[in-house]
């Protein structure tokens, strides 16, 4: 079922676009080969990364409402990107690198603040630290944007809402090499994440090396998110809604949930990006707006369900 949806999403991403291309000529078309195909595949990888990261962080924080951006990563990445734009380094390579660097700084700060006595990571303190780091980064970002010129402002604004228009075979190649590593780390932590849902001490008594699991999950989820933000800006709600839907459909066993979330997240973002490209063609909506327009109502429904139970 999910596989069918995923294939449909990928097919629609390749087949549908502002320029109408007959079915028979799809594979021969340079538009498809150079633009739509890498972009569709990148959307899938980015969506999958965000959903995997969200699933891992929910398990780590034992909170179904955690998402990849909760821990200040989007703030750090945004600050890096806006800084690069303001300084005139908004090139196709320098911008992602700046965003990635910003996310890594935020990650390191939150990690450092989350370390308590004895070198243990305290998820509750990480959460507070993430919110604080995010708020600080947002303030600096806004200060920079408010001093920026009009074109810079527009670029920064569009970046902050996410988009995949920068997709190319090169970015796809970098992501295809990078993403499997943290995804594998998360997959290896699937069973310990199930144990962690019982609390840290019970998980330890069942044989989980709790501190190692927390460290690995946090770093893997953060590195996935940082890369996703670097190539596509801040795309909200995929990392929150997809794991949550996955939990409703497949339950909470992370061995099932993590792969399902990757495919589900990829599917959702691929559909969303197709919509973003075509809804107001020839112009483009930031894909973060599409995911938010879909994500907020879904999230509201989930909240109703959650509070009603």
């Amino acid at each position: 079922m999910l596989a069918v949806l995923a294939v449909a999403a990928l097919a629609s991403g390749v087949a549908i676009g502002p320029a109408s291309i007959p079915w028979g000529e799809l594979l021969a078309s340079p538009i498809v080969r150079e633009l739509r195909l890498p972009r569709t595949l990148l959307a899938f990888i980015v969506g999958g990364s965000l959903a995997s990261a969200g699933t891992g962080l929910q398990g780590l924080l034992r909170n179904p409402l955690a998402d990849p951006f909760l821990l200040g990563l989007s703030g750090g990445a945004s600050l890096g990107a806006v800084l690069a734009i303001a300084l005139g380094w908004g090139g196709p390579w320098s911008l992602p690198v700046a965003a990635f660097a910003g996310a890594l700084v935020a990650m390191a700060l939150v990690y450092r603040l989350g370390l308590v006595a004895g070198g243990a990571l305290d998820p509750r303190i990480m959460l507070l630290a993430g919110v604080a780091v995010g708020a600080f980064a947002a303030a600096v970002t806004t200060a920079i944007v408010s001093l920026a010129e009009a074109t810079q402002l527009r670029n920064a604004f569009l970046w902050l809402w996410g988009g995949l228009s920068g997709a190319s075979w090169q970015t796809l190649g970098v992501m295809a090499l990078y993403v499997p590593i943290p995804v594998a780390v998360l997959a290896a932590a699937a069973r310990p994440l199930d144990l962690l849902a019982l609390g840290e001490e019970p998980a330890r008594y069942l044989g989980a090396d709790v501190e190692r699991v927390k460290r690995r999950v946090y770093l893997a989820a953060s590195l996935l998110t940082a890369a996703a933000v670097a190539v596509s800006g801040v795309i909200g709600f995929v990392g929150l809604v997809v794991p949550h839907l996955g939990r409703l459909v497949w339950g909470h066993r992370h061995r099932v949930l993590l792969p399902a979330a990757f495919v589900g997240g990829g599917t959702l973002l691929t559909f969303a990006d197709t919509l973003a490209r075509t809804a107001v063609a020839p112009r483009e909506l930031p894909v973060g707006i599409v995911t938010a327009l879909v994500g907020v109502p879904v999230f509201a429904l989930l909240l109703r369900r959650w509070t009603a139970a």
Partner: peptide, 20 residues
């Protein structure tokens, strides 16, 4: 190691969570 210990000793803790 926690794993090796958990093969020898099992605990029913006083409290645990049911996050998921």
């Amino acid at each position: 190691t926690p794993r090796a210990l958990a093969r020898i000793v099992a605990v029913v803790p006083q409290r645990e969570e049911q996050a998921f």
